[in-house]
């Protein structure tokens, strides 16, 4: 695992920066989009870190039923826009 991915603070910052930078055009991302942030790491290690960020409440899943995407928690379309709390 690279130093960047194994350092929780730095990897979180890198992911949040990446998503914030793109937030104007896009709020949901495929798992593969995160590979670019950690070019030296294996997909499985990246997946584990990204999923941990979901558990920590930094990111959230969006699922169409067939595909799952990730976004910053609270970004883009939310429950409230569907009339839910």
């Amino acid at each position: 695992m690279s130093d960047l991915l194994s350092n929780k603070e730095e990897s979180t910052k890198a992911v949040v920066d990446f998503l914030t930078k793109k937030a104007k055009n896009k709020t949901k991302f495929y798992i593969k989009d995160f590979y670019a942030i950690f070019p030296d790491d294996k997909p499985r290690a990246i997946k584990n870190v990204i999923n941990a960020m979901v558990t920590d409440g930094i990111l959230e899943f969006w699922s169409s039923g067939s595909t799952t995407m990730y976004g910053l928690k609270g970004a883009g379309k939310q429950h409230s826009s569907e009339g839910e709390e």
């Binding site: 899943f61 969006w62 939310q78 429950h79």
Partner: peptide
């Protein structure tokens, strides 16, 4: 589709 789900799971709810 949507962001619905149960805590810690990325699937099982559509």
């Amino acid at each position: 589709g949507g962001i619905v789900g149960v805590f810690g799971y990325g699937g099982g709810v559509i």
